[in-house]
Amino acid sequence: MDHQPNNPLHGLTLQRILEELVDHYGWEELGQIVKVRCFNNDPSIKSSLKFLRRTEWARKEVEQLYLDTFFL
Rank of each mutant, 00 (worst) to 15 (best):
F70D: 02
G31V: 03
D23M: 08
Q4F: 15
E19S: 11
L67H: 05
A58Q: 08
L65P: 00
P43I: 00
D2M: 14
R53L: 14
E56G: 08
V22Q: 03
T13R: 05
F71M: 09
E61H: 10
H10D: 12
L72D: 12
A58G: 06
H3T: 14
G26L: 05
V34K: 00
E29M: 13
G26P: 04
S44V: 07
R37Q: 13
Y25Q: 00
I33L: 09
Q15G: 11
R54C: 10
V36T: 07
K50C: 13
L72G: 11
K35V: 08
R54M: 15
V62W: 03
K60N: 14
L49N: 06
V62L: 13
E56C: 08
N6S: 14
L65D: 02
Q64P: 04
Q32A: 13
D42Q: 15
R59S: 11
L49H: 10
H3V: 14
E63M: 07
P5Q: 11
L14D: 10
K50R: 15
L49Y: 01
W27D: 02
D23W: 11
I17V: 15
Q64R: 11
E19F: 09
A58K: 06
E29R: 15
V62T: 06
E19G: 06
R53I: 12
T55K: 11
V34A: 04
D23G: 11
F70I: 01
Q64I: 03
L12S: 09
P5Y: 08
R16N: 12
V22D: 08
P8V: 05
F51M: 11
W57F: 13
E61L: 12
H10K: 09
E19Y: 07
E20A: 08
E61A: 11
K50E: 15
S44C: 08
N40C: 14
E63I: 04
I33K: 06
Q32M: 14
I45D: 05
N6M: 15
V62H: 05
C38P: 09
G31A: 00
L65E: 03
V34H: 02
I17N: 03
I33H: 05
Q64H: 04
P43F: 02
P43G: 05
T55I: 11
P8G: 00
S48R: 01
E61I: 02
Y25R: 04
Y25M: 00
K60T: 14
N41G: 06
F51C: 11
E61V: 06
L65A: 01
N7S: 09
L14Y: 03
T69A: 06
K46M: 09
P43S: 01
V34W: 00
Q64M: 07
L18W: 04
C38W: 08
T69K: 03
E19H: 10
L14R: 09
L18T: 02
G26T: 01
H24T: 07
R16Y: 14
S48K: 03
I17P: 07
I17K: 02
V62Y: 04
R53C: 13
R54K: 15
H3F: 15
E56L: 12
L65W: 03
P8Y: 00
N7K: 10
L9P: 00
L21P: 03
G11T: 08
M1K: 14
E28A: 12
Y66E: 00
V62C: 09
R53E: 14
D42H: 12
